[in-house]
Design a protein around this nucleic acid. Structure first.
Length: 804
RNA sequence: GCAGUCGUGGCGGAAUUGGCAUACGCGCUAGACUAAGGAUCUAGUCCGGGUUAAACUGGGUACGGGUUCAAGUCCCGUCGACUGCACCA
């Protein structure tokens, strides 16, 4: 028995067997506890799999395989997020139908994923582009529409002046079109919107129900950007009119010495005739509009603005007349597009006031407002503030809001940075929006029994000159009848964004072939929520937020029973090129997983990607490192030639065995795969040192290694005559009492410096340890001429003798 | 600019509650095996002094300070890297 380890044969063999045995099919035995592991499904691009893909897939494959061995009914599915721009662009360029392109790409991806031996339940494979799938994406959209959460609004799109095409944000690079390099401007278009803002509070508050890694929670909260404050009407002097502002600091209202409105604010045109410097204001507005977002940010430090000549406002707190300015640091898109400026307690207002010499009035004591704005809210009492004087900031806020409400000129108000979701794309390769526009009845949903509304074939996938979707050119598809009145109507020609299909795919995996519902309620109740979801940080604020929103909406309709879709969310770091830079074709540092599988085998690739470093941090590829992992598997392979026929652990390694089981088990759970593998390497080194390994020891090692390297362990299991398949075995258990030696080596320090080490009995008392330590030659010599001040003893760790 | 994460050998990276810094892997060096090379096995490998070899000894976790019997770990400051946000009232 000494044939060579040949992953090529072994891996194909076991992949075939697992397939035939349906080894990883979920849902057979519902009396078992369930475990739903999920990884973000890939976009099947033309380039095929990238070495970045296997990192998260392997990580959760390890968890899924371990859970099965622990007796869970495990669902670990895979599918394709297949709508998307690259496919469409490829189709345009090569004149191939996107359906064909997608089919080919999926085939390639699937074959590559299969070659890596993942324990996906392939019977549940789904693709967002499959009409049987997008039927239900459209169905869910109709529910949004029926509840008034899908609506039409005029929204700007990115418009390339040269290509005459609407661009996705990702296609606009540095303010110019990614493809032709010409200027991109904003063009207003009527678009479908989803009212995600209606769920803003719950999307924040319900984060308490789930176990997401901290940085994911923080970025979701920041993205939603909830701030609590007040809305206040400032009367315009000499008019019946008022200017509405939003502030988070109503307590500082006595310090509001001027106002600022955004350059686009409608007030300017409303009082055009009374404003003496109207031309100057318009010039400023045009200048501001020309600035790209980038420039606006660059100039952030230097405030600009123009005072409106001819209009002033009244500060309702002081009753004083104050000037109104326009400036581009106030955004029309947030709050009301107007602010009260309190230069003493807001940094931007302070800078602006300094530049234009506007009065700064301190209303919260504690800082030096001549030097800088004092923005602290947790210390300092109100001053110069009439009825608020002497109050703390928080009390003053409440009192001011109370006062405003009594006067009827203000109220408590919550604002969000989160905007409603623009749900239209002027593209071909997406789900058609199942709505028709009837001149008489307005927007009418198509009847649910007519779903799916299929994408029609077109000659060309290029968007039109006017920015309409290519669907607009197919008049016999566009022209239809109104489902309500039977009159003439037109179909919506925009399609959905690629975030649509991915917002609910985890539910379709649960019941992928259902044609009566998006999934059966009983099945949903059994499997939901997803127990562990891993994905990239780049999806935290879009995909993750969107799908939580859809889930909550379906929860409100009673269609799912859990308020949150995902119980636990973790995130992986990127795999960088060998030079430490992001892998890309142009940098020439791309590693193809197929090459690694061919040269070393899938088990080596899997092991290496788990060993490469901390899972949540970026890691640079190293071909030397890959070889090291292959060497490790070779060493494991050869253990079968060192086998001693004994089902038990050897006396010498018993403790090491129990320690390793404990370490590997807990490291997998906390995604510290690198140290788990290091522990197994250490164990293998021990076997080599001993010159032999018992059958019991080898079996345990194989079980521990199986989730990471499933093929080689399955093969060895068979070779050494293990019962059944290794995937059917139970996860090894350890005995806590056998993880500790009965003697331990401790360090003896003098003044914190290690001077000697000594073996002691486990939990030996300080007195006896100290006596013996003081008898050691190296200690005696030092201590003799000094006096002992203090002795610190940490049981089983260290003895520190402090001398003078 | 703000927020977050981080900074450990030649390299990737380990280090529960503060308790023997550098586990594991790569690379390198030497030896064994070999006709030879590769592969493999064994030993060594933080830096410096010291020694035939050891013993022994000084320094050491970006930099400067602090707390502590004891700091990679905690606190303050500085520098650098990465990520996210970018005037959000």
């Amino acid at each position: 028995m000494c044939e060579h380890y040949s992953p090529k044969e072994i891996e194909k063999k076991w992949q075939k067997i697992w397939d035939e045995e349906k080894a990883f099919a979920a849902g057979r035995d519902k009396s078992k506890p369930k475990f739903y592991a999920l990884v973000e499904f890939p976009y099947p691009s033309g380039q095929g799999l990238h070495v970045g893909h296997p990192r998260p897939y392997t990580a959760l494959d390890v968890i899924a395989r371990k859970r099965r061995m622990e007796g869970y009914n495990v669902l670990y599915p895979m599918g394709w997020d297949a709508f998307g721009l690259p496919t469409e662009n490829y189709a345009i360029k090569n004149k191939i139908h996107p359906t064909i392109v997608t089919k080919n790409n999926i085939e390639r991806f699937k074959q590559q994923l299969k070659s890596l031996g993942y324990s996906f339940d392939w019977d549940r494979e789904i693709a967002t582009t499959d009409p049987n799938y997008y039927k239900w994406t459209q169905w869910i959209f109709l529910q949004f529409f029926k509840k008034g959460l899908a609506y039409k609004a005029e929204m700007p799109i990115n418009w390339c002046t040269s290509c005459k095409v609407g661009l996705a944000n990702e296609e606009v690079v540095g303010g110019v079109c990614e493809r032709c390099g010409s200027e991109v401007v904003r063009k207003v278009k009527s678009q479908w919107m989803l009212k995600i803002t209606a769920y803003a509070d719950r999307l924040i508050d319900d984060l308490e129900l789930v176990n997401y890694i901290e940085k994911v929670k923080v970025s979701q909260i920041n993205w939603i950007g909830r701030s609590v404050g007040a809305e206040v009407e400032f009367a315009i002097a000499g008019k019946e009119d008022s200017l509405r502002i939003f502030t988070t600091r109503p307590d500082t209202m006595f310090g509001a010495t001027y106002m600022v409105i955004s350059p686009e604010h409608p007030l300017i045109d409303k009082y055009k005739d009374e404003i003496k410097n109207y031309d100057e204001l318009i010039a400023y507005r045009e200048q501001a509009a020309k600035k790209s977002d980038f420039e606006r940010a660059e100039l952030a430090k230097d405030k600009t603005g123009v005072q409106i000549d001819g209009l002033t406002a009244i500060n309702p707190a002081t009753g004083k007349e104050i000037p109104i300015w326009i400036s581009d640091y106030v955004l029309m898109s947030y709050g009301t597009g107007a602010i009260m400026a309190v230069p003493a307690h807001d940094e931007r207002d302070w800078e602006f006031a300094k530049k234009f010499n506007l009065p700064i009035v301190e209303v919260v004591a504690g800082g030096n407002v001549d030097e800088a704005a004092y923005t602290a809210t947790d210390s300092g009492k109100l001053v110069n503030s009439g009825f608020l004087n002497g109050l703390e900031v928080e009390q003053a806020k409440e009192k001011m809001v109370e006062w405003l409400e009594q006067k009827g000129i203000g109220r408590k108000k919550v604002n969000y940075k989160l905007r409603d979701w623009v749900f239209s794309r002027q593209r071909y390769w997406g789900e058609p929006i199942p709505i028709v526009h009837c001149e008489k009845c307005g927007y009418v949903p198509i009847p649910e029994e007519e779903l799916p509304l299929m994408l029609p074939d077109v000659e060309s996938y290029e968007p039109t000159e006017t920015g309409e979707s290519p669907l607009a050119k197919i008049s016999d598809w566009v022209e239809t009848t109104c489902p309500k009145c039977g009159g003439k109507a037109y179909r919506e020609t925009d399609t959905m964004p690629n975030w649509a299909g991915s917002s609910w795919y985890y539910m379709r995996y649960i019941d992928p072939h259902n044609d009566k519902a998006f999934a059966d309620k009983e099945e949903l109740d059994y499997w939901l929520p997803v127990d562990w979801y891993n994905g990239g940080m780049e999806h935290t604020t879009l995909h993750l937020l969107y799908s939580r929103f859809w889930h909550k909406f379906l929860y409100d309709l009673g269609l799912v029973s859990t308020p949150e879709p995902y119980m636990k969310r973790t995130s992986h770091g990127m795999i960088l090129g060998e030079n430490g830079e992001k892998m890309s074709k142009s940098r020439g540092n791309v590693v193809n997983p197929d090459d690694i599988v061919n040269e070393y085998g899938a088990d080596t690739l899997r092991t290496y990607e788990m060993f490469i470093g901390a899972f949540d941090l970026h890691a640079a590829w190293s071909s030397e490192g890959v070889r090291g992992c292959r060497r490790f598997l070779d060493r494991v392979w050869k253990l079968k030639d060192m086998l001693a026929d004994d089902e038990n652990y050897s006396k010498a390694l018993e403790i090491k065995m129990h320690q390793t089981i404990k370490k590997v088990s807990s490291d997998y759970e906390s995604m510290k795969y690198n140290t788990a593998i290091a522990a197994m390497m250490g164990l293998v080194n021990e076997f080599y040192k001993a010159g032999s390994v018992t059958r019991g020891e080898l079996k345990t090692l194989l079980l521990l290694l199986n989730p990471v390297a499933p093929h080689i362990t399955e093969e060895l299991w068979e070779l050494i005559g293990g019962q059944g398949r290794i995937y059917q075995q139970s996860w090894p258990v350890y005995d806590e009492s056998k993880t500790v030696e009965d003697t331990v080596e401790i360090a003896i320090q003098i003044n914190g410096k290690v001077k000697a080490s000594m073996a002691i009995a486990l939990d030996e008392k300080q007195e006896s340890v100290q006596t013996r330590a003081l008898e050691l030659d190296s200690i005696k010599a030092v201590v003799a001429s000094k006096t002992i001040v203090k002795v610190i003893y940490v049981p089983n760790k260290i003895l520190n003798i402090v001398v003078k």
